[in-house]
């Protein structure tokens, strides 16, 4: 995984602010820890090359 150019706390705070989400102080450490886990998983998915024709597996039927 590529090392982010800023700390996980800055990342989590910025994401929360972008959603107008006020993170209670008691949540911050836990959210950072879980975000790290998700980033590792996200890297696996991101790095897997897919053809442009591969559509998301949504099941919406009009």
């Amino acid at each position: 995984m590529t090392t982010p150019p800023f700390s996980d706390e800055v990342l989590v705070t910025a994401r929360a602010q972008s959603m107008e989400l006020a993170l209670p102080a008691a949540c911050v450490a836990g959210v950072i820890a879980n975000t790290r886990v998700l980033q590792n998983y996200a890297a696996l998915v991101r790095d897997f090359s897919l053809p442009d024709t591969c559509e998301p597996a949504g099941d919406y039927t009009p």
Binding site: V12, L38, A42, L50, E55, P56, A57
Partner: peptide
Amino acid sequence: LAGAMLPASTYVQAQRFRR
């Protein structure tokens, strides 16, 4: 909370991988 803040691109890519 961590899940709610995942970027949309990550979610969509996961659904593409699922396909």
